[in-house]
Design a binder for these strands. Sequence first.
DNA 1: ACCTGAACACCGTTCAAGT
DNA 2: ACCTGAACACCGTTCAAGT
Lengths: 270, 270
Amino acid sequence: MVPAADRVKKPGQSSVWMDAKKSPGGGAGGRGGSGGGRRSDPAAAHLDRDRITAVTVALLDADGLDKFSMRRLAAELKVTAMSVYWYVATKDDLLELALDHVAGEIVLPDPDDDTDWRIQLRQLAQSYRELLVGHPWATLLVGRFLNIGPHFMAFSGATLAVMRRTGAPLERHGGMIAAVFQFVFGFATSEAQFNRLAAEAELTTDEFFQRSMGLIAGEIEESPLFRESTELMAARGGDTVAEMYDRDFENALDVLIAGIETSGATKRPE
Amino acid sequence: MVPAADRVKKPGQSSVWMDAKKSPGGGAGGRGGSGGGRRSDPAAAHLDRDRITAVTVALLDADGLDKFSMRRLAAELKVTAMSVYWYVATKDDLLELALDHVAGEIVLPDPDDDTDWRIQLRQLAQSYRELLVGHPWATLLVGRFLNIGPHFMAFSGATLAVMRRTGAPLERHGGMIAAVFQFVFGFATSEAQFNRLAAEAELTTDEFFQRSMGLIAGEIEESPLFRESTELMAARGGDTVAEMYDRDFENALDVLIAGIETSGATKRPE
DNA sequence: ACCTGAACACCGTTCAAGT
DNA sequence: ACCTGAACACCGTTCAAGT
């Protein structure tokens, strides 16, 4: 086997997904492979891509993207910094593997299940949101790569299938998919990073929200914007920031689904 | 004046926007302040926040976020690495300033103009998209900060105003705003980063798109996903990647506006 | 085939000192 | 008040060498 470093190098070559899959069963790196704790098995076997990816995800979940480094990863794997480079050409390639790995958490509808497309769409959107909020570092990576790994491809296939079931004309599907899933990405990014900022300030999200509002109020207290956003705040309902996010998310999906229905989807059978 | 480093330090303090504005006219750092070329004025005056911010934006536009560093910035300003820290507490704070600076490019509707809200919403969305695609580094930062600088606040005020003019009930506005502007953020992120990946591979976006399709085809050629996405590709229309993005964006806005109308907006006067 | 050690060319930021 | 110099504790990655 040729070292990973020799595979992906020049511009014009740009994907980790070019070479054949390792351990075709796909097992070793599976969900929860390196489990609850952070220290890996003391009697650990040799390295492989799956184990490296699993430990990478664990570190990213624990400490975030900024604190992740190849050297910390190597320490965690009880190996020198450079060993990892046998399996992976660059840090970016590794992050791409980690991102697609967690994308496997998205729950896809059974293709033979003929539940109403509105319900399937909501479930898919909610599951994607949960993935991103559950792994805040992922929101910072989704934009950076092409996302053509196996799990993202499966997700993409599932969205196509749901859109197909709306009955809307095919030339609208691109816009519909963009409207829904780019929204979910944007929304979840905002939600996840808000949580991260709060955590970094060592506050609950509700406390952090109060403080942010105070900051803004200082700037714009006398402007109409202040009155308007206060009114919106109240009208929006929900006692906590989490409830507010949930409500906005549901309402936005209502808007999107209503818009898709107007775009030529079959009407609800009632 | 107290050094910036003494202002923002502990967790619990988290915004560059806390202290009074410098040079209240707001002039020096304005649009195109450091203009076309990259080398700054040889007879340059002393540092100030506006000049630092303007040069930061110029460097980010020229070389991207990954290549930007405090040391390169200092070199560009013809000053030692540490001088900048008199004006700015951390690199992150500086990036926050740069981000809000370019947010000033978003064209906001005149509050006294009573053009149909649909048109205003489209213009605002398109202008936000252009900002993000024009400064790809900005898509990587929008998620990271609170975005409560003056220009983002003005943008936020403008979106509230447009929503108000839809006539939809106030409790829906949160969801409507999220649906539209988180979509634009997600969409523009994808578009901007696709352009960046193509540029890094030293290909046109169209060439890069072809190559990506080839990559995917290798993976999924025999699966139904391949046929489906090929069909969608064809149905979507447009001869170039740029046209495809434009078309999807317009179609998605159609979906969103139709959804907002259903959410209780006043119907189009026809 | 796989892993190590030393080195290169960088980082952000602190701190004490200069003017 | 503003700027510098030296240093600390890191980075990603290359390269030649070990087993």
